[in-house]
Amino acid sequence: MVDALFLGFAVLTIVSAIAALEMRSLIYGSIALMGTLGGIAGFFILLDSPFVALFQIAVYVGSIAVLILFTVMLVKRELIFKMKEDRKRRYAGIGLMLIMMVALGSLLFSSGLPSITTDEPPVDYKEIGKDFLTYYWPALIVMGLVLAGSITGAIALARRVDGVEDEQRTD
């Protein structure tokens, strides 16, 4: 049975995902994306995974969405509202989306998954901490290095060299 909370989160997530892609203004689009990410955090809470939900809110809704918002604000005003797309390509995209939904949905319903429910107690978040520090510790260290490297790379990429005129291409 689907409860009202689940339905609310589902509507929020899917409607705001469509709005994020289809809204004319990129700023409203990124705010709608925040709705999608928050809705997913809600699903995580429904799935008894409060730790992942917390992480989702802190990383996605808190930092990534704000980062995207600031990047959008660095872009010229007319580019924020510009929506240039091929009509044929759009219909092909919608077709691809529907085919994907129908194919994966029918695959899902023909599998044994619809009958799965659970009465077992949720996994304790202490388990996750233990996993991180015992079995997955090399991965955790590599993750830290990857994050540090990517942030350094991002800063190095976006750095503006003072005194040098921006290169502008006309082609």
Partner: peptide, 10 residues
């Protein structure tokens, strides 16, 4: 838990 796996997968 009242929701089933299939709901989340959809």
């Amino acid at each position: 838990m009242s929701n089933e796996l299939i709901d989340f997968l959809i």
